[in-house]
Nucleic acid binder design. Sequence first.
DNA 1: CGCTAATATCAACACGTGTTGAGATTTTCG
DNA 2: CGAAAATCTCAACACGTGTTGATATTAGCG
Lengths: 209, 209
Amino acid sequence: MPAPKRGRRPGQNETRQAVLEAARARFATDGFTATTIRRIAADAGVDAALVMQFYKSKDELFGAVMSVPPEALDRMTEAWKGPADGIGERVAQAFLEVWERDPRTSAPLLAMLRGTIARDQAAGHMRDFIEARLMRGAAAHLRDDHDTRLRIGVAAAMLVGIIVARCVVQVPTVADESLETIAATAGAALQELLTPTEQSSGTGRQPAS
Amino acid sequence: MPAPKRGRRPGQNETRQAVLEAARARFATDGFTATTIRRIAADAGVDAALVMQFYKSKDELFGAVMSVPPEALDRMTEAWKGPADGIGERVAQAFLEVWERDPRTSAPLLAMLRGTIARDQAAGHMRDFIEARLMRGAAAHLRDDHDTRLRIGVAAAMLVGIIVARCVVQVPTVADESLETIAATAGAALQELLTPTEQSSGTGRQPAS
DNA sequence: CGCTAATATCAACACGTGTTGAGATTTTCG
DNA sequence: CGAAAATCTCAACACGTGTTGATATTAGCG
């Protein structure tokens, strides 16, 4: 293979965008520390030094990737507006759609989230723990149908989310409160989740579309 | 086979424990990749090579740290048992106590959780995003008292927890379900959280002790 | 054309990493 | 005691990292 041509290449300038997209994908897949400049450069088909020339440092590149489109924020904010009736599902639906469904919004958001997670074996540990310990232990004391298992899983995920918010990310309003206050607040929500009322039970139920 | 105790007896096996505790603290503080063998060794006051002699590799050391005391599992499992009335708060309380209150159980659990989180700037990004974007956007459409703000924070934490369980850790039962099913299930719980019924409102409320 | 600025590659630096082998020191036991 | 084994330190290896300076090639413009 002949030596790759040096110097500026003819035609339109798409390289900057390619680097950014490669970085976004890598950060979202491997996390921040595990992602290397050289790998991003290889994905984009350029030299590592060029990446450093576009963005002064790895941190700045990461910052450029983190830009969340305002559309996502708007869609999530809108869901809070409206009648109190059905606000729970409305917010959950909007939240999940923005984070999972639409690639244009989920890409940077997941990059941010997964960027904080080391793609080490620890994620596997976490999964095993939640599945085998938390959920299996809970299912032993409850009914063992599909719907109940799902509800336990969602409850476990919610609880872990609270721990993350309090102990790891340390979101002020949530982290500042006492354990008892949080337990009381979250407990009421979990109560509805674990002992569903009539109108919100059933597995394959379709949401009001 | 009779155990021929040859060689030096661990008369003072304090070093092994010191290494393990240093590793636990470091993993919990800095995460897995950011934690170095040399730093652990320095914390324990020994050479890095000794750490590698006790535990064959960094992965094995991490695995040794991850050992969750069965007491923690039992306490969390017990909470699911009992009457359906108050199961939500009972589970939440037990969960939070094990993860936050008791250092003997919270240390390895937080090490596992934080071990997966890179202590980079990304955690700060995450905090800013949750606080400034999610919570502030929601508060604009709701009342602005302390209790409401807390409930929004808990709701946001729960939602992020679900995303983590689905997209990052990929807990089977939760990740396999459709977006709509998850939204409907979680939505019902959030509904109770955001539009509280009479008996579960109020901030400084004491749980039934 | 010539000039400047933007692209792009290359080689290398300084550093930190996990890991290893040799060897010193201390303890235990036959 | 003397041998064996465990504990512990030291020095170094091989490697990958982010980052930098020099340099080559091209685009745009007067």
